[in-house]
Amino acid sequence: MRRLIDGCAAFAIAVAIWQGIVWFTGVPAFILPGPARVAQSLADNAGLILDHAGITILEVMVGLVIGALLGGATALHLVISPRARRVFLPVMVFSQAVPVFALAPILTLWLGYGIWSKIVMTILIIYFPVASTFFDGLNRTDRGLLDLGRTMNATPLQLLLQIRLPAALPSFASGLRLAAVYAPIGAVIGEWVGSSNGLGYLMLLANGRAKTDLMFASLFVLAFFTVLLYGAISIVAARVTAWATGESVPRE
């Protein structure tokens, strides 16, 4: 509750500063519309914005699920197989030197204007953060626990399932939180490059027609959705990995 109040206060301050800038500079509305104008546009175009938001949300969610599964599976594979580590890890790191945004036109060329070029863009953006944080987590298992497993004659599979995997869940969760913030960026970039649907398309369209208020309204909806997604993932992650947050203070 306290956090919600603080969040609303921060939002109110940001809106006040925004309104202040509009008043003091007297900037024309097609350059920077005031909050009231954007709210009005949001209300007037609610149906239109929601339609496009639906497409973007679909792309983000599908991309997030597939990207998280692929990233998680990659990390597990790298941990299990030393060979995969030798061959694949350098490739993975090198691939990050390629600016993913630059691939967007190619993806549109290959996969067309539909949602799949955006979903693949989303997957590409979140894949590496998920895979690398989870991989780090799996590698950072407490050495003492591994020693204990060894003296207990643990099977390698059980050691992975019972100790390394649960111990790495907090890292996986932080990878997913990052992914929640990055995924909408991937979808919107895909939409910018070529599409006839989605919030990215709508923003580009509104911008081109000097409907700056509509652009801001779309942007606001996108940001709102991203915050919701981040919040939802954080809450689920906190539930699952409550043991790692030190919620219950050790009693002496």
Partner: peptide
């Protein structure tokens, strides 16, 4: 083996920590 640190798995209950050896050996 017992070490200076208790080496308890923080995600498991007391009972599950006591049972961890059997679990690790399937």
């Amino acid at each position: 083996y017992m070490a200076q640190s208790d080496l308890l798995a923080p995600w498991l209950s007391v009972r599950d920590n006591v049972l961890i050896g059997a679990r690790l050996r399937d």
